[in-house]
Design a protein around this nucleic acid. Structure first.
Lengths: 341, 341
DNA sequence: CTGTTAGCGCTTTCAC
DNA sequence: GTGAAAGCGCTAACAG
């Protein structure tokens, strides 16, 4: 028994007026007699009539929905970001369609295709594999605006919401140096990502500025798969001149590093200090507490949504490139500074 | 310059054939000459034609999208659940629209309204405030199936995916008793939630079975707002006969309890042991590690999506009530058992 | 094998 | 103030 959805046709028939009048009454058009409007509204209420969003979307080509594509959201950074973005979208009358690319380029492309015609705009962080950006250009050609956040690329003209990764990494490494560390290793992210490159450069320049030689054997190429961290750390410890500090590209890697170091009996931070990136929820609970660069997640989410909605309501010809660089803060905890007790 | 979207009309015009033929060629209908089909497919490819999902959804009243409404997803339980659900939906060709009710009944209702006509089915965990279920019945009347998971209610005939909260709580409390604890407090959740009631009953019965008197002053009414945990713990410690064990309704509360207990210098687990619920990511990193009931999040997500998609493809008249009860596991860590070292 | 046509629910001219 | 009718992109009878 297929449930018949109440339509304006039903309302019109019931009231013996035309559908145009019903439509006008419902949408608050001025040219409707007060009495007629009241009758329509009353009946609509009574029958629990609700506009069919699909027909509206179809007609107007507007879905009142935005899409968010992230690599994953098990890590607290992306899950917090999606949380905040959803709330901000909601405040503006938009719904949120989410996709995880699972760090897979093909899935990312498939997701952008699925989003065409389903959303009015897309917010995204690219995968570590993404090197070709045709799928983003295609969205633009379709008049669907994009806002990139966190993991961005230079190849597309879209607003970007980022932090100063170079500066944040520089500060983090310099902090390690300040605490007396001299052989600082770096778990570096995939070179395809801007953030990896910038954080690596920040690391290198902080060492250079402090006259510490760059040792290639201390720069580990890490593919963001946490399962490999243990191996990387053991490899570092096995060096004839092992590191006394580690700067990890992100918190999951830093946290796994701490776990490994504790397992093999290393004293943190005295024998080896650890700094992470992003202030994952776990960071403040783990022992020792993880020193890390906090990103303004909520601000990044809200800014991205706002920029996106501006574009959604702007003619593509007038879209302009904006780059918002948000402030970070180095949160110092016990993984780099012994507790004063 | 509004970008014109390529439609089957364009393809038909270009090839001098009718739109029906184009439609058939595109959708793999058998009755199309191979040559014609090839030409259509070729042109479609060339012009980067893609079906307008909105028109399809409009026509068929099917959106190929499911909605997920959760109270929040900052805690790892819901974020993991959404993660897994999104992946499972994706494997089945469905997209996911997410909403957070923020534990607010009115928002939950608003979300269900927004979902009408936008999704083919809804998966949800109700808020702690939800006592009226008309919004769910309305969805059903519209032919939109619902699957409830984790936080369910008895008032609606819909499949439910849950765990045996009573049994899990019973096991957790009995474990505390086994370790020698005799005055066990309970941070109890809002009585409106089934899970709260069941976990409370498990707590009570475990005490009873072991001949431990129920002490009302040890049962704290906790509203799921973690900021209040500190006060609750201090209140418990101020009792003339303070507890030697705490069973918290969820991990965030248990984690906050541990933090508070550590701050006031209590030895965990010797002076007071703590057990949580849900195996939040933080639980295994905090010190001492938190003993907690692990819920099979991935299984719950996958099961819920599968049940929902079954209903989506079933006539409402044939919908049947299924209740899946999944297994839990008590994960014992140092918050209840001192490390053997 | 292919073309013609109705229609999904709604908004929006254009008439009256 | 109100009604008639076109049309958004596509599918699915129906007719050849």
């Amino acid at each position: 028994m297929k449930s018949h959805q109440v339509t304006i046709i039903d309302l019109a028939a019931e009231l013996n007026i035309s559908i145009s009048t019903v439509s006008r009454a419902l949408s608050g058009h001025p040219n409707v007699k007060a009495e007629t409007r009241r009758a329509v509204l009353e009946l609509a209420e009574k029958l629990d009539y609700q506009r069919n969003q699909m027909s509206i979307s179809f007609m107007t080509s507007k879905t009142k929905t935005i899409g968010i594509i992230v690599p994953e959201f098990t890590s607290s950074f992306f899950s917090q970001l999606v949380t905040e973005a959803q709330n901000e979208a909601s405040r503006n009358g938009y719904m949120v369609l989410i996709c995880q690319s699972n760090e897979n380029y093909n899935i990312e492309v498939a997701n952008t295709q699925l989003m065409r015609n389903r959303v009015d705009g897309v917010m995204m962080s690219i995968t570590k594999e993404t090197k070709n950006f045709d799928h983003l250009h295609t969205l633009h050609k379709r008049g669907i605006p994009i806002v990139l956040f966190n993991r961005v690329c230079d190849e597309i003209m879209a607003p970007k919401v980022i932090i100063d990764d170079y500066d944040a990494a520089f500060k983090a490494v310099e902090h390690l140096i300040t605490t007396g560390k001299k052989r600082i290793a770096h778990l570096a992210g995939p070179p395809s990502l801007n953030v990896s490159k910038k954080r690596l450069n920040g690391y290198i320049d902080a060492l250079k500025k402090n006259n510490i030689p760059i040792d290639e054997s201390l720069i580990i190429s890490y593919d963001l798969n946490v399962d490999t961290v243990k191996t990387h750390i053991k490899q570092l410890l096995a060096l004839e001149n092992p590191p006394d500090g580690i700067f990890a590209i992100n918190d999951p890697a830093a946290i796994e590093s701490i776990q490994t170091l504790k397992q093999v009996g290393k004293k943190i931070p005295d024998e080896i200090a650890v700094v992470g990136f992003s202030d994952d929820i776990v960071s403040k609970y783990i022992e020792p507490g993880l020193t890390t660069v906090a990103q303004p997640v909520a601000e990044m989410a809200v800014t991205s949504v706002q920029l996106l909605l501006e574009l959604v309501n702007t003619d593509p010809a007038d879209w302009k490139r904006v780059i918002k660089v948000l402030n970070t803060e180095l949160i110092i905890r016990e993984s780099t500074m012994s507790k004063k007790s």
